[in-house]
Design a protein around this nucleic acid. Structure first.
Lengths: 158, 158
DNA sequence: TATTGTTATACTCTATAACTATA
DNA sequence: TATAGTTATAGAGTATAACAATA
């Protein structure tokens, strides 16, 4: 349990972090914005999956995911196979052009971050990464799951 | 100096942090979105200032800031006085209605975060806050300053 | 009838460029 | 002529709702 001023400070820090994300986004290739990058990255890490699963991992609505997927499919970075288990779905997977694009993006990110964070120690950076992962997980744990009815989102926290 | 995989991990974490910001934004009052909240919060912390200064603190274009300011001024949360030093500018300041709005927002944020982060220790939270502040500062230091020509933004980092 | 996915519409945030008013 | 600020326009990200196809 932490102090109220720390929660207020965290809210400010999260508001300000948009600047960092924006700076980093500017290093992306012209036709691969952040949403597309997230799709490619998740397909690389988790392997083939449906749009619905991707939407769950991105924690955005499926309609949003559908648009991101259409973008990367139009550019030939992913393949779509019919799902043998369900005719309404297709299985998405990263193809070799998508892997090349991700490699390019990774190099841009690393170059930018290495220059920007050159004063940071290995330990500081891994601590930040761990805390961010934990922050994300804490919010995930409170978000109602798909297929778990009875989660009343209007309920005030106790 | 840190390892390449840590930079890649940080890029992923920053991409995923959007989820947290979105969750937190949903707790805001209907007519005070995140941009408006940032304006009110900066006026509270730093006192009266011009739009140009606000844009600098927000690290967004002045045209964006102008719209956010118009929004909060339309709702009567800030006052605008003529700037005695420059007839083109006005000095913005938070008024009492704006303070009430910020108080409401603060309570919502604290309630949400206290519920979401109830497992977090005081130390963990302050460490996260410090690291986020430092991350922000590292990016700030590399961003070209207003009135400092000669910063070639197209140059690749060495 | 329910679910998967797509599309239409709308809102927020941002940037660039054209414009007004003042310096 | 240059600067402070506003407005028009455009693009990215998101959500809700209506819709199509399949389960």
């Amino acid at each position: 349990m932490a102090a109220q001023s720390q929660y207020e400070e965290l809210a400010r820090q999260l508001s300000a972090i948009g600047t960092v994300k924006r700076d980093l986004s500017r290093t992306l290739p012209q036709d691969c914005p952040a949403g597309s990058t997230a799709v490619l990255s998740l397909l690389q890490r988790h392997g083939e999956m449906r749009i619905s699963r991707l939407a769950e991992l991105l924690a955005v609505d499926m309609s949003v995911t559908s648009r991101h997927v259409a973008h990367v499919a139009d550019r030939g970075w992913i393949d779509r196979q019919p799902d043998p288990l369900d005719g309404r779905s297709r299985l998405l997977s990263l193809n070799s052009d998508g892997q090349k694009m991700l490699q390019d993006i990774s190099e841009r990110y690393v170059a930018t971050l290495a220059a920007t964070l050159r004063e940071w120690s290995d330990d500081d950076l891994s601590q930040l990464n761990e805390l961010l992962a934990r922050l994300h997980k804490s919010f995930d744990d409170r978000r109602p799951r798909v297929g778990e009815p009875g989660c009343d989102r209007t309920r005030r926290p106790e």
